[in-house]
Design a protein around this nucleic acid. Structure first.
Lengths: 218, 218
DNA sequence: TTCAAAATTTAGATCAATCTAAAAATATAT
DNA sequence: ATATATTTTTAGATTGATCTAAATTTTGAA
């Protein structure tokens, strides 16, 4: 069927198309896959041959229905395995990406279904990202970036935009986890940093943090 | 480090050397890996280059200390994942081999340790095979083939020699699982089939079955 | 609008893992 | 002990995934 390399390309293309709302170009895919544009062109030909993508030379690439199905299933598996690693094996949220990256390619009849049952059908992964269901449907998340909230608004941390270990560890350090209540006290005109209230404690978060933190308002 | 293909060769060599108590020859490895002797020779050169095996042309192959460590770790991971699949996800014992074959190659710091903790340090996998500990030590199993027991001896099923799905399903059908108590009533001179007592019911098992079933005598 | 810069593709290699067919080495049976 | 059979290795290809360097196409700025 599809190789691991092909699957990783499909996932990368899916994410680029989702983010940019247009066909993914070769360089964007190369950057995402940490490889060269030439390698990407080769792979795109193979994926087009298998009708997993629609590829027009020099014009970028999009997923076909079956390519989309493969990518969605991979994201589903990746996020379910992340829930397993954190909730069952006790990993921290910044430690699970690389392992889930491998686990998502494990094939086996009923494996995803049984894992999903075992985990009791989680809707979100440990970073707050939605887990598509078995039919590929996505849960809608009523959340906003901390950067977009008005002063005085309260909410609970519901996800992160950036997934780097260093950012996640920083959040740990300042006592922010999924579900933590947070109130935006004031946004500084000078540098767009924000004063927030976390467990009765006032703290200052940089604009960068506020642009990478999702909050579900209460 | 080592590729998945290399790891699978090391595991195959480990098992052949264990079974035959001598260097594994090319054809035996080819049979185990379901490939050609020529492919095996190629791979042996690469593995010898990496000092994972000791390979003398035309004289067979054995594992070095580091090759042995890799193979043992793979078997440990394979069997731990099988325990996970059966005990946690609810798979049957004849359904888990292929999936564990993939899971054993997943790399990740602390993954095996955390999985082992989560499973509460099982000593045996769902087929009764011993799981080497983190230092590569094997649990000793005081078990004998049903075929080697004397009439009148009672015991509990403790493992299988053959691992095929069809054999395991046959055992399910006749009500034999790990731990099931069984008594050898009589061995027939004619065809070495055995009359056994299982949960008060007498049944006849073929010689073939008796040669593939391990019993821990009481 | 044209031409240089940027993006992309093509050409030609390389590497791991495999194959078939042929050659060489080892084992075995008369 | 020698010839035949078996086992193993070598030679030469192939495939997927990658690379660098060169050629081509597209984009956008003067």
């Amino acid at each position: 069927m599809t190789t691991t390399a092909e699957e990783n390309y499909l996932k990368a293309i899916f994410k680029i198309v989702e983010r940019e709302s247009k066909a993914a170009n070769t360089n964007a895919v190369a950057a995402a896959m940490q490889t060269t544009a030439a390698s990407v062109t080769d792979m795109l030909k193979r994926l087009a041959e298998k009708e997993l993508i629609v590829y027009e030379k020099y014009r970028g690439v999009q997923l076909t229905a079956s390519g989309n199905q493969v990518a969605t299933s991979l994201i589903r598996k990746h996020r379910l395995w992340e829930v397993f690693l954190v909730n069952k094996l006790g990993f921290a949220w910044d430690e699970v990406h690389e392992i889930a990256e491998q686990l998502e390619h494990v094939q086996g009849e009923h494996l995803v279904k049984r894992l999903d049952d075992f985990l009791e059908h989680p809707q979100f992964d440990p970073h707050g990202d939605p887990i598509p269901d078995a039919e590929g449907r996505w849960a809608y998340r009523a959340q906003r970036l901390l950067a977009d909230l008005q002063p005085g608004v309260r909410g609970a941390v519901s996800g992160v935009e950036e997934h780097s270990a260093v950012f996640l560890q920083y959040l740990d350090q300042i006592g922010l986890a999924l579900g933590t209540e947070i109130e935006l006290v004031e946004r500084m005109d000078y540098d767009q940093s924000v004063r927030v209230l976390i467990r009765g404690q006032e703290q200052v978060l940089s604009e960068k943090v506020s642009r990478n933190l999702y909050v579900k308002t209460l």
